[in-house]
Design a protein around this nucleic acid. Structure first.
Lengths: 230, 230
DNA sequence: ATTTGTGAATCGGTTCACAGCG
DNA sequence: CGCTGTGAACCGATTCACAAAT
């Protein structure tokens, strides 16, 4: 291996491996096989081996992977050897929860500012930070070298929030608002949508219920047929 | 078309279409082309047509799709013609925010209970509801016909929360805890992990920075080369 | 004339299965 | 011998491109 370009699907799993590996170190382990890591991360071992092979040949045949070394390599690949400053745009319900979320700082993400367009909220303190005016976003991004914008506004305000983040120079956006937002090609956008997740679960839940009642229906029909046949 | 089995990827997009269609009705529209819906949902039109074709032939060639009818068909397919009761397990930061999240009830999801293992929290009111004892989960699930469990506990407690939900008969789980949890095959599991999303953004952010400094480096080298050549 | 619905081509990702190496 | 690393086969999803429908 070793010629640029890690598949998106692999990138999305690296943080998962990282977390499992960190837990293993905590438990005093030093090496792990692809099988062991796969179990911990909830995937299969072929996937682990292929994923890790994109980073380089960091395993030892017959032995496995050195946990500490692998943590270092994955962290480096994910850009976690440096800290990233984030700004949370929209400090309602969810914005509040995100602002207070620890685990955030755990992986080197620092909430450097909270902004909201509602003037009544400006000045209000949330943990260490005071809510600032959305209008000052550009200045804040520049001064504090913010590289990640977290959109936690209501749906109608989300595109505007994103536009302002982009024109302030932010190149990575995480959108929690239940709205489609569009950004230029050179900006990364990920979204987290609670309501969509619930609707997906609803689909499968319904299908299970339908199958169940079909099974039940068949059984009833069968026994009914039996009882009517003398 | 029309022989069971809608691809997972399609199921995941149906809620997106539904939201766009609802917005269109609000704006007084009555029909929409695959192109129009694609733009609103942030996908391409071929995908829209293929996705919708799995539900049946609900469009009119030369015209497009009837919005109202399509909303009905997608809602039915997603199981949104009925309400679903949810229980939130773990009422910390995030659990609180989820409990107060409107938009929840919007699509027919009702938070029927909040439970927490911390006895000091039991009894505390959050909006309409009082926090109940995690130990009573099984009874609560049965009495209130809860079908969806939302895990918002700390990582260490997540698997236990899931196990208890499963043994109470819950077949759909949405996991917010930063931990891998495993469930039997007949249980649907989706996960939302803030920290993982940030790490993915970090990867691309870093890559952009690396590319940028490479470009800058080249330019410098080029001009340096030029200046040293007399 | 316009837009759907869908086979066929293509792509990205997963899994298999085993050669290669410690 | 055990486990990694990886070509090859496979699979699901996306995109293309056009015939069919109104």
């Amino acid at each position: 291996m070793r010629e640029r370009a890690i598949p998106e699907a692999t990138v999305a799993r690296l943080p998962l491996y990282l977390r499992s590996l960190a837990e293993m170190t905590d438990r005093g382990m030093h090496t792990v096989s692809s099988e062991g890591l796969a179990d911990a991360a909830g995937v299969n071992s072929a996937k682990v081996r292929k994923d890790l092979s994109y980073l380089g040949s960091y395993g030892t045949r017959g032995v496995g992977y050195d946990i500490e070394y692998l943590i270092y390599q994955i962290s480096r690949e994910l850009g976690l050897t440096q800290d990233w400053n984030c700004v949370i745009v929209g400090v309602g319900n969810l914005g509040h929860a995100l602002a207070n979320y620890r685990g955030f700082s755990a992986r080197g993400f620092r909430v450097a500012a909270l902004v909201d367009a509602d003037e009544r909220k400006v000045g209000e303190r949330v943990g260490e930070l005071a809510i600032e005016d959305f209008e000052d976003l550009e200045r804040i991004v520049k001064e504090r070298q913010v590289s990640i914008g977290i959109v936690a506004t209501p749906a109608v305000a989300a595109q505007d929030a994103a536009d302002r983040l982009v024109s302030a120079g932010v190149k990575s956006i995480l959108n929690f608002a239940p709205a489609v937002i569009t950004v230029p090609d050179d900006v990364s956008l990920r979204k987290v949508d609670l309501s969509i997740e619930l609707q997906i679960l609803s689909f499968y839940e319904q299908r299970k219920a339908a199958l169940e009642s079909l099974r039940r229906g068949k059984r009833l029909t069968a026994s009914a047929a039996k009882s009517t046949r003398p």
